[in-house]
């Protein structure tokens, strides 16, 4: 029982990483109706920018702020420069562009900052939280920031007209144009916000996993899994999904004999797929009713 409780707690604290990434995933999904395979790399690149600034002596929070702003602009720029010219290309062609971006960003980060691991500071310190060794103050801070972001997003989408316009543009672009919404700018805005949230995720994750060009690969996958599990239409669901993935992964690794430790990731994914077979829109997503 004690072990179970500890493993759940440990799961929640890794889950915070996934939750943060899942939030960024949902954000982009709302904007472009697709998963962005390059998102983890974008977050990684942002984190390197922050690292560089901090190395140059910029105070942490200022570096944080600059990174978020630069990432936002970068996200908008990627949409405008790379995707706008081919907006009518088939979706699979866009998926291929995500793969290309992934490759470009990863390679450039390796070229500029090389592949050695770097440590990244935490603004929350790393002392044990509430006297527990399983969850550190950094992880506690990460959970708090994730929940804070979630609240901000909720307020933005529910109570601002830009938020409303973004939702309308994603849900029904044709109708959105008819009421005068500039749908393609809304998409760019979605990219910017996703990049900004991704950069926050990257900066929070880096103190835990260390900074290097490949740091986000598996985290993005867990983030996808969390977002899909929670239902891609619901930011709150995605965050819960991210935590759930952390817990499932930890429990699978602990309690499934022999193969558990080796197959942590696949088992977590299988659990998720089983959930999806029974709840195809995710745990918190709204079921899609289609009529002809």
């Amino acid at each position: 029982m004690e072990l179970l409780f500890q493993q759940i707690l440990a799961g929640i604290s890794t889950g915070a990483i996934y939750a943060c990434m899942a939030l960024a995933v949902v954000m982009i999904y709302q904007a472009i109706d697709h998963l962005n395979f390059a998102q983890g790399e974008m977050a990684m690149f942002s984190t390197f920018i922050a690292w560089q600034l901090i190395e140059k002596g910029v105070p942490y929070w200022l570096a944080f702020l600059i990174t978020v702003v630069v990432s936002f602009i970068g996200g908008v720029a990627i949409e405008r420069i790379v995707f706008k010219p081919i907006e009518h290309a088939p979706v699979l062609s866009h998926v291929v562009i995500f793969i290309a971006l992934y490759s470009v960003i990863n390679s450039m980060a390796g070229f500029i900052w090389d592949f050695t691991v770097k440590s990244f500071p935490s603004p929350f310190g790393s002392s044990p939280l509430f006297g527990s060794t399983l969850i550190s103050s950094h992880q506690g801070g990460m959970v708090a920031v994730t929940l804070g972001l979630l609240l901000l997003l909720y307020l933005f989408f529910s109570y601002t007209s830009v938020g409303l316009a973004m939702r309308a543009a994603a849900a029904n672009p044709a109708s959105a144009r008819l009421v005068g919404i500039r749908v393609s700018w809304m998409t760019a805005l979605g990219w910017g916000m996703a990049a900004a949230i991704g950069s926050i995720a990257g900066m929070l994750i880096a103190p835990v996993v260390f900074l290097e060009p490949n740091m986000m690969i598996s985290i993005l996958l867990y983030g996808f899994a969390g977002a899909v599990l929670g239902g891609l239409t619901s930011p709150g669901g995605a965050v819960l999904g991210g935590f759930a993935v952390g817990v499932i992964e930890n429990l699978a690794g602990t309690y499934i004999p022999v193969i558990g430790a080796e197959l942590k990731l696949p088992i977590a994914l299988v659990v998720i797929v089983v959930v999806l077979v029974f709840k195809p829109a995710g745990l918190f997503g709204r079921v899609v009713v289609s009529r002809v």
Partner: peptide
Amino acid sequence: HIPEGRGTFTRM
């Protein structure tokens, strides 16, 4: 323009 099919934002 009220389009064919009304163009309602059904989720909202």
